[in-house]
């Protein structure tokens, strides 16, 4: 199975080969998990999203026409699952807030132990990405890291294409503010001086 391409494996999986689908999962797992982690921000949540992604992929494999690579198709499913997951989580937090009247941080919780393991992902940029609100982060990750088309992003997040573009614009601005605070302060200072 090692030497067989993903395209061939996809064909075999569509014909009902369990082995082929398992091999697809093995080969794409790291990428799918990384994207899920970038979108939801904690290892536990990312694992749930990955589980859901492969279940959806398995159920929908017959509908995969092969006009994109299976990895791209899996990214779309991951984005969709992560979006649903985050929406449910936020809704649940709102419910808790209403019921218990506690002040809860709506930012996605971080997992410091796992974060330390992710060698290479830890950088100023990663930290800045994590500070973005989930709605903005999702669009920046999908567009600027995974090069997903605006139309695809809009479809998976169930928003309009123009809303996706607005979120991307705000997300990029916010990232720059976080990474280059002096530059932003100088700009604001000169604006006040005028």
């Amino acid at each position: 199975m090692q030497s067989v391409s993903l395209d061939v494996l996809t064909q075999k999986a569509k014909q009902g080969s369990k082995k082929a689908f398992s091999e697809i999962v093995r080969r794409t797992y790291a990428d799918t998990y990384t994207l899920a982690y970038r979108l939801v921000g904690t290892s536990e949540d990312a694992k749930d999203v990955v589980q859901e992604t492969y279940l959806k992929a398995h159920k929908g494999l017959q509908r995969f026409r092969g006009d994109a690579q299976i990895t791209t198709w899996l990214y779309r499913i991951t984005a969709n699952c992560a979006n649903t997951y985050l929406s449910k989580k936020l809704r649940h937090k709102h419910d808790v807030l209403e019921n218990d009247e506690e002040v809860i941080d709506l930012n996605v919780q971080r997992d410091p132990a796992h974060m330390a393991q992710i060698v290479g992902l830890r950088s100023e940029l990663t930290e800045a990405l994590e500070q973005l609100p989930a709605k903005l982060r999702t669009v920046v990750v999908l567009r600027d890291i995974y090069d997903m088309a605006h139309a695809d992003i809009a479809e998976q997040l169930q928003i309009s294409e123009s809303a996706a573009k607005v979120r991307l614009h705000r997300g990029r601005q916010k990232l720059k503010e976080l990474l280059y605070p002096q530059s932003t302060e100088m700009e604001e200072g000169s604006a006040h001086a005028v």
Binding site: V25, D31, Y33, Q51, G120, L121, L125, I145
Partner: peptide, 24 residues
């Protein structure tokens, strides 16, 4: 920098991968 992050992947959690395969 964002574009270069595309090829960075998180380390595989073998136990979780096994549970995904088992569920499937």
């Amino acid at each position: 920098s964002l574009a270069s992050m595309r090829h960075q992947v998180a380390p595989i959690d073998e136990a979780h991968l096994a549970s995904v395969l088992e569920e499937y």
